[in-house]
């Protein structure tokens, strides 16, 4: 027993040591980003990219894309990339914007964690003479109007993307077929837009939406919801999932229920984990909104605005349907 205890303790120390080593060179942590930028004294404009949930693959991809772009245009601007711990940490994101104001960034490119709460602090940023560009999650138009604020939105039309996936799915169904929607977190703009897009396509094609439930963007919850729905309503022919994680959960539930052959699943985001499933046909389609370019579009736009001084209009970025065919499988 004592030897065992000693052995375990040694193992613990070893783990701590190893994990400690692994941590130190992490380049993407907000702290590192801040220290590297605060020391800059050049005249290049400083663009602050404020994201939410660096834990999310989507924002990780976004950040990597932005960093690659900055490296390629290192003489044009400095980049500070920061993000919150999880997607709903609104308070922390407000603090991050305040920090960026204090650091006198020239532009803030923000993916707001909440489409209303962040409006106030962005107004303070604009008042301080900072260019603000909105990406990913669009600010609420009423909240902007209330403060007489104009912040350009640069990003994809999620509703259009979802409609593309829905229309592609409709080609594989017959009018009147029952389908179900698995929603994201219902309070978020993207979740609402994607749901609307799915509904547009299904109604246009005459499908019958028999259920629409949220699985909070989560894989496990989607698996549970789909398992329950397919039991209660075995006639459902397709699940339209508002992101790919939930599509993965749907596929696992359908596999367990032995219904994978006759029920279609579509997703959204085109994450790497669904590539094989798309090729095998277990997920029929997904939508790529080019996460790696989203922040870049916003940054380029902000640089234009710094040069021109004008407040330009919103700009739409591309969304593309991804299927087995577009991936080039025979």
């Amino acid at each position: 027993m004592r030897v065992f205890v000693k052995f375990m303790f040694f193992l613990c120390l070893a783990t701590l040591f190893v994990s400690g080593c692994g941590n130190s060179p992490a380049p993407s942590s907000p702290e590192n980003a801040q220290t590297s930028s605060s020391s800059t004294t050049t005249s290049k404009p400083v663009v602050a990219l404020v994201m939410k949930s660096l834990a999310n693959e989507f924002f990780q991809t976004m950040e990597n894309g932005a960093r690659a772009h900055q490296r390629a245009h290192a003489d044009e601007y400095e980049l500070i990339a920061v993000g919150t711990k999880d997607e709903l940490d609104v308070n922390k994101q407000v603090q991050l914007v305040e920090q960026m104001i204090a650091q006198k960034a020239n532009a803030i490119v923000i993916a707001p964690a909440d489409s209303k709460t962040l409006v106030g602090v962005c107004k303070r940023a604009q008042d301080a003479g900072i260019v603000v560009v909105n990406i990913d999650n669009r600010f609420d138009s009423d909240a902007l109007a209330e403060r007489q604020l104009k912040i350009p939105f640069v990003g994809p039309d999620n509703r259009k993307g979802a409609r593309l996936a829905g229309e592609y799915l409709a080609k594989h169904l017959h009018p009147g077929d029952p389908v179900a929607i698995i929603e994201g977190v219902p309070t978020t703009f993207n979740a609402q837009q994607r749901k609307l897009g799915f509904e547009d396509a299904m109604q246009a094609a005459g499908m019958q939406i028999v259920s629409s439930q949220t699985a909070n963007w989560e894989m496990d919850r989607a698996s549970q919801v789909v398992a329950a729905l397919i039991t209660e309503k075995p006639e459902i022919k397709a699940f339209l999932c508002a992101n790919d994680s939930m599509a993965l959960g749907a596929v696992s539930a359908l596999r367990a229920a032995n219904r994978l052959q006759d029920v279609y699943v579509v997703g959204f985001d085109n994450i790497s984990a669904v590539q094989d499933l798309l090729k095998k046909g277990e997920i029929l389609a997904t939508v790529d909104q080019h996460a790696d370019q989203l922040a870049v579009y916003g940054i380029e736009y902000a640089l234009e605005m710094i040069k021109s001084g004008a407040t330009p209009e919103d700009r739409e970025t591309p969304v593309d349907l991804i299927t087995a065919e577009t991936l080039g499988t025979p």
Binding site: A55, D220, S223, L248, G249, S252
Partner: peptide, 13 residues
């Protein structure tokens, strides 16, 4: 968990 979902997601659980 991973066997059930055929996938591992760091946001899980």
């Amino acid at each position: 968990y991973c066997a059930r979902l055929s996938a591992a997601n760091p946001n899980d659980a």
